[in-house]
Amino acid sequence: MVVTITVNGTKYTDDISPDLPLLDYVRSKGCLSVKRGCETSNCGLCTVHLDGKPVLSCSVLAVRANGRQVTTLEGLEEEARAFGAFLADEGGEQCGFCSPGFIMNVLAMAHELDDPTDEEIREYLAGNLCRCTGYQSQLRAIRKYLTSKKEG
């Protein structure tokens, strides 16, 4: 089926199979930051923004993105660097394999929630698994990032 999907601002028109997950579609467009960590929609590694909302690109079929805007970490390089620097300064990226999906959801959260509490942050990001860090350094990084954003 022929679809037109905008990935990080570039419009692509392709004839794709209806069962192609958005994850594989964006990887085929060179967005290799998007990772797959499971087959059961549980890990959050594949998080991308679909019309600005964080979704699991493993579960959304590419046909569903027809006519819509998809954003991956490659499309948010500047924001990724800004938050990523805080994460790096805590050592909170560790193996880095979950970082792209995690950062995509942190950026979505920063847009969606005003002044979130630690509990709200934890809840928003609960769908992003990480096996390396125990999550504490990530929370420290988010706190510092949100404070720096507020202070402008």
Partner: peptide, 21 residues
């Protein structure tokens, strides 16, 4: 000292540095 990892920024910006990439 709390030195930042040398590969940190490539990891947090999602660079294609893993096997599958």
């Amino acid at each position: 000292a709390p030195v930042r990892k040398k590969d940190a920024m490539s990891l947090v910006t999602g660079k294609p540095v893993y096997v599958e990439d």
